[in-house]
């Protein structure tokens, strides 16, 4: 009886969050799913259920190219920001001269919106940007057009620069918080028992922050995989990412193309979900291997 009442209290307590999540997240997802399967009477499409929109999307070469680029733009910055963010957090885990200032500066990009990051990258790295103009004024390049192309190219350097600008500090903060938490003294214990600094780092400090690293990199990857504005603004016209392709279809003048856009969205959601689930699975196996669960 008592346990039952407890459960009711939990359900009631979670109700506000569940309601908001269902309304704002699950609802639209179901609508998108229905539209991608051909149920969109507002746009004059009523052929539910059909898989032809999925067949059309998955069968096109543009989809495969966009998928490769989406993975590329998502995975590379995730690896770089994880490595750099963890390294910074480790380097700054004990106060050193000037580290307070450095930490404050590192935290700054987290509060700056991505679009501002994009403007910063354009102002600096565009061919008419600050760096190109300075190099031109110094005579290092013959014209601003000779400055190597960082933005608007398939290489995606501009896109990835913005991601790194935000995500290295993000990873740094998450990992730093984990380092500062309970158990900071274990490293000293290990050292006093004779472990070398490297061994203490590898066997004591790092394992303690792995959950934080996994969380940070999961969030970073999920964002990079699904974001639209940054690749739209700083990527090439073609090739570009899946969200940009989806938005293009969503914005087509002919509203009866919306189901195709929704099929894109469902595929993006599915791929991103599968990748994240696989990553979590690997992590859990690692945890089990260490005797945690």
């Amino acid at each position: 009886m008592k346990a039952g009442g407890h459960r009711v209290a939990i359900v009631l307590g979670l109700a506000p969050v569940t309601a908001v999540l269902s309304l704002l997240f699950i609802g639209p997802l179901l609508v998108a799913l229905a539209q991608s399967l051909g149920h969109a009477p507002i746009y004059g499409v009523e052929e539910f259920p059909t898989l032809r929109y999925y067949a059309h999307v998955l069968g096109s070469s543009r989809f495969r190219i966009a998928l490769l680029y989406t993975l590329y733009y998502a995975v590379v910055p995730t690896i770089v920001s994880t490595v750099a963010g963890v390294a910074l957090a480790l380097a700054l885990r004990h106060p050193i001269r000037g580290s307070r200032v450095l930490v404050a500066v590192l935290r700054l990009p987290v509060v700056v919106p991505y679009l501002v990051g994009a403007s910063v990258v354009v102002a600096l790295f565009a061919n008419g940007g600050l760096i190109a103009r300075v190099l031109f004024a110094l005579g290092a390049i013959g014209s601003t057009g000779d400055f190597p192309r960082v933005l608007f190219s398939a290489g995606g350097w501009g896109v990835m620069l913005v991601y790194l600008f935000k995500q290295i500090p993000f990873t740094f903060i998450v990992v730093s918080a984990a380092l500062a938490g309970d158990g900071a003294q274990y490293e000293e214990v290990a050292r006093s028992l004779g472990a070398t600094p490297v061994r203490a780092l590898w066997h004591v400090v790092l394992p303690r922050v792995v959950p934080a690293i996994v969380t940070a990199s999961l969030l970073v990857f999920a964002f990079n995989f699904q974001t639209y504005e940054i690749p739209y603004l700083l990527g090439a016209t073609f090739p570009n990412t899946l969200p940009v392709e989806a938005m293009r279809r969503f914005n087509a003048a002919d509203l009866s193309r919306r189901p195709e856009a929704m099929a894109y969205l469902m595929v993006i959601t599915a791929i991103s979900g599968v990748v994240l689930a696989a990553y979590l699975q690997v992590y859990r196996r690692w945890e089990r291997g260490r005797g945690r669960s």
Partner: peptide, 28 residues
């Protein structure tokens, strides 16, 4: 960005009118 006669890369097509205006004003 089309690279003149030696195709150095794909040309840049600005994504919006504002982006083209920015390049025009910047002298690109």
């Amino acid at each position: 960005g089309g690279g003149g006669r030696s195709a150095r890369g794909a040309p840049i097509y600005p994504a919006s009118a504002a982006a083209l205006q920015a390049r025009f004003v910047a002298g690109e």
